[in-house]
C-alpha cells in the first residue's frame, strides 16, 4: 500500500455545515483513514488529524459553513479550509492560546478552549490565515 502514486492521486473535498455538531469530526476522521490506507507515517497523520479536526470545528462553531480541501503534492500535504463569514475580527488575538469567542453553550461541551488556531499552527510546516467579513481562509502545508 505504501505507494507514492497512490498518495499523489489524493484530492479530497468536503463541505462543512455550520452548527452541525453531530457530524462534526467526520471529515477529519475520513481524511485520517484515507491517509492511513496509502501508508502515510503515523506522526504525520496525527498532525493532519489535529489540523483538519480543529479547522472543521472552527467552521462548525464560528462560520456560516464552508469546506475543507486536501491534496498530496510531492512530500507535502496541502490543506485548504475556507468558510463563509462572519470572519475573524482580530487575527493576532485569535492566534493567542486561550483566546476564544465561543459562546458559553459551546464551551460547556468542551469547545472554545482558545487552542484551535494555535494547535493548527503548531502542527503545520506552513501556515497562512486570511480573514474578512466575507469569510476566513486557511492554507496549511504539512511535510512528510
Amino acid at each position: 500500500m505504501n505507494n507514492s502514486k497512490d498518495k499523489n492521486k489524493i484530492k479530497l473535498e468536503y463541505s462543512i455545515i455550520s452548527n452541525d455538531f453531530k457530524r462534526a469530526g467526520e471529515t477529519s476522521s475520513n481524511i485520517k483513514s484515507i491517509l492511513k490506507k496509502v501508508g502515510i507515517d503515523n506522526k504525520v497523520i496525527r498532525k493532519v488529524a489535529i489540523v483538519t479536526y480543529e479547522a472543521e470545528m472552527n467552521i462548525v462553531i464560528h462560520s456560516y459553513g464552508g469546506n475543507i480541501k486536501l491534496m498530496v503534492e510531492g512530500n507535502n500535504i496541502i490543506i485548504n479550509a475556507y468558510d463563509k463569514g462572519p470572519g475573524i475580527e482580530d487575527i493576532s488575538l485569535a492566534m493567542k492560546e486561550g483566546y476564544s469567542t465561543a459562546t458559553d453553550e459551546v464551551r460547556e461541551l468542551g469547545f472554545g478552549a482558545g487552542m484551535g488556531l494555535p494547535n493548527i499552527k503548531k502542527c503545520s510546516d506552513y501556515f497562512k490565515i486570511e480573514s474578512s467579513t466575507e469569510g476566513t481562509r486557511l492554507l496549511i502545508k504539512i511535510s512528510f
Partner: peptide
C-alpha cells in the same frame, strides 16, 4: 473526562 457528547468519540478515534 466528564464530557459525554458524540464528539468525544471522534477525538478518541483521531488520536
Amino acid at each position: 473526562t466528564v464530557q459525554t457528547h458524540i464528539n468525544i468519540v471522534a477525538i478518541a478515534s483521531l488520536i
